[in-house]
Design a protein around this nucleic acid. Sequence first.
DNA 1: ACTTGGCACTCGCTCGTGGTGAGTGCCAAA
DNA 2: TTTGGCACTCACCACGAGCGAGTGCCAAGT
Lengths: 339, 339
Amino acid sequence: MLEDRRLAVLRAIVEDYVSTHEPVGSKALVERHSLGVSPATIRNDMAALEDEGYIAQPHTSAGRVPTDLGYRHFVDRLSGVKPLSAAERRAIHEFLGSAVDLDDVMIRTVRLLAQITRQVALVQYPSLTESTVRHIELISLSPTRVMMVLIANTGRVEQRVIECSGPVDESALADLRARLLSAVVGHPSARVDDTVAGFTDSSPPELRPLASAIVATLLDAMTERIDERVILGGTAHLARYGEAFPLAIQPVLEALEEQVVLLRLLGEETMSTGVTVRIGHENPVEGLESTSVITARYSRGNKTVASLGVVGPTHMDYPGTMGAVHAVAQYVSRILDEQ
Amino acid sequence: MLEDRRLAVLRAIVEDYVSTHEPVGSKALVERHSLGVSPATIRNDMAALEDEGYIAQPHTSAGRVPTDLGYRHFVDRLSGVKPLSAAERRAIHEFLGSAVDLDDVMIRTVRLLAQITRQVALVQYPSLTESTVRHIELISLSPTRVMMVLIANTGRVEQRVIECSGPVDESALADLRARLLSAVVGHPSARVDDTVAGFTDSSPPELRPLASAIVATLLDAMTERIDERVILGGTAHLARYGEAFPLAIQPVLEALEEQVVLLRLLGEETMSTGVTVRIGHENPVEGLESTSVITARYSRGNKTVASLGVVGPTHMDYPGTMGAVHAVAQYVSRILDEQ
DNA sequence: ACTTGGCACTCGCTCGTGGTGAGTGCCAAA
DNA sequence: TTTGGCACTCACCACGAGCGAGTGCCAAGT
């Protein structure tokens, strides 16, 4: 009962601070929210909340501001995920649906996410390790050069050039191609190691070197981690929020230019809800102490393949942003399934 | 003689302002540069320069600041292009030389350029208009969906998904594929329009719709211009410079997020020197009125293929930046030739 | 045991004020 | 044409007073 009100107060503080970006005082609180008690009571609660570390005052005689811990509690206990409106969902689906290829899906996603959250958006490319081989093509570029094109069911295409020790004729290539296809198509790429084992051995002796070169290249291409690519968009939103924190924006921009950093931001364990929130100092990255990162995993079929998310100030609209990130992840999954 | 000194004064003002970012007064000028005359004389010159529109004062009783016109004169008449040191050149060559593919070259270039100029760097992908079709693959994804993979002799791969009105069987697809290959392989992509004309007509009636869909997609994919891609890096440098102009950074970031804008920044006529400088309002882009853009074209063989450059505040180090942009363009050309 | 009104206190913020100094334009002399 | 002198402008800064939002504490009320 008493505890309940305290939490209500914390929620109110977070909501007010998020919308005004100014420290919130006891009087303003009772005015804006119908808490049914007097400011003095609220003050007592606030003192308690401060003792527990959920809120803090920037300086004496100022209102309270949520701490990272306060936001954490807010996210974990006090708020849900705000679903998007039907119109928004329809717009998302249409926008993503008209993408022509994987690159296009990724680019559209990052733009979309930045636009609807009005924050910096990150999108990681789907990992191929979970995918299966859809098709392999061997093309003779010159007598001693073969290009291998690998097409995954995710729509991703990898290309490699293989140098042969001697000339290779078309029919041999066609033979290799046919047997290679039967060896790997449809198999999860993680398993290709096994299924491809017999391929070299079953090749005619004179093609052994080429066959093993092809296998080596194939394995290399498959372990090429496309999911180490992260694209970002909406950095202009940083400047908007940066008006109040002109100092903070440079380190953030710097951090966001490092692929490694982006990967660390996205690549952590999944929460059960499907949306992961990392607040302020919880971030494993220097320079992002005053930002929060909200990520969700997206999938293809029922396999989780990669993450996407947004980076914004700790005083962000968590329910709305979480809803948007969740919805976009969901729709990206759907689009990938369709293809 | 008299005219000479005025220009020397203008040069001194630009140099001082660029290094201090503060309006420069007559007294400071004579102290820092050995002009051999008194402050009063300089004041007369400054008044004249102001009348001619080369400099301006932010407010009465402040020093002078170069106008866009002043910078223009400085660049055109008063400064050269500062060459890089041998060590820097060597570092550039090594850094770019270890790139593994085209994407890698582009990414390394944009990083390099941002780093050595300490500004926002832009790099446009090289245009590949003279490429020919090496191979086309049609893959059935589902009964009514076909993926087309287009491989150009440059190693570029394009993929498209085509929706069919009815189910398509494998043998029909194989037939289409074979005839498509003979129609287009080896032809310059610019000519495919012609050679592909008979393809639809020669198809069996029941495949006509699919055939024409394939042709349409093919033409679309071929005219997909890779050189419409521009990547950028070093946006963090904006923030550094933005400390003094916190308001200006948001529109700049916004403008830089638009591919169309980036293309307009890069895609203009070449100057004879090889380096183009566009100062302040000379930029054809809204929001970049207080920035300058320095670009250079790079080439492959003796064909100019695309541009790269940097965006920075109008009060930038023109000679140094021009030198860096020029050198990087030169080395990118060299790297592309080697491949 | 909470809640509440009252009250004294803190302290950041704003605004006006005056002083300072860099910088200018003009003018008369060299 | 250059130069020193001089009066003038005005941004900038430091200082101080007043304001007011907000707090903590306490004693009284429910």
